[in-house]
Amino acid sequence: MSDTVLETRDLTVRFGGHVAVDHVTCTFATGELTAIVGPNGAGKTTYFNLISGQISASEGSVHLKGRDISGLPVPERVDLGIGRAFQLTNLFPNLTVLENVRLVIQSKRKKGFNLLTMAASHTELTEAAEAVLERTNLAAQRDQIVHELPHGTQRKLEVALLIALDPIVYMFDEPTAGMSVDEAPVVLDLIEELKADTSRTILLVEHKMDVIGTLADRIIVLHNGALAADGPPAEVIASDVVQEAYMGRALEDA
């Protein structure tokens, strides 16, 4: 758990006069699960967007395995191994659950520019997609149209897409938000399972402190866009600055 896979150096983005992410320098080691916490508007999702490429930095850089990827568009970062699940559900609403996952597998295997074969004849893609559905407990919804599914199931599919992509760096943005009490553990178990694979690195934005306390190897705290704390879970949660300023309420809730 020593070699750095992902690194942000002085990563900054400004929207007009507002500094959303403020000179965040941080490294993420292979096999580590880092939880990113902080109050609403602290810049967690924006920090994610900078890493996965949905917005570009005003200053600073993102490095994957030592390579500067700051200037690359989203799909190229995906190719290099950065995968992202979104906080607000972001799926292909008029396609079936299977088709959503199949599209990811197809992208992963570079079959997108296959023009003259029938998509249906690529049974290997379908089988791989079915395996992901099985793993994410979505097999029963295989042929349902996504926008007809309940919100919690859509959230689960959001996670399934990331698992199908199987990147080097998994980025989960509040994966259990809006899930029912019996659905959330399924997703958390999946993340736990991913964690067991030491070649994968996981970044997790999550509010539930009890979850993070047991799951994370490390917690970083963002406040007003800046890095406010960084360290092992117990230490960070116990630290005065976190207790008082940001985590007081969250801890009581949990």
Partner: peptide, 26 residues
């Protein structure tokens, strides 16, 4: 054939949600 090929599926995905299509590598 083209609209029913893997390429056709990607086109549909992009029509549905180009933001997400990019986020899965297209």
């Amino acid at each position: 054939r083209i609209v029913n090929s893997p390429f056709g599926r990607v086109l549909q995905a992009i029509r549905e949600n180009d933001f997400r299509a990019e986020a899965i590598g297209y």
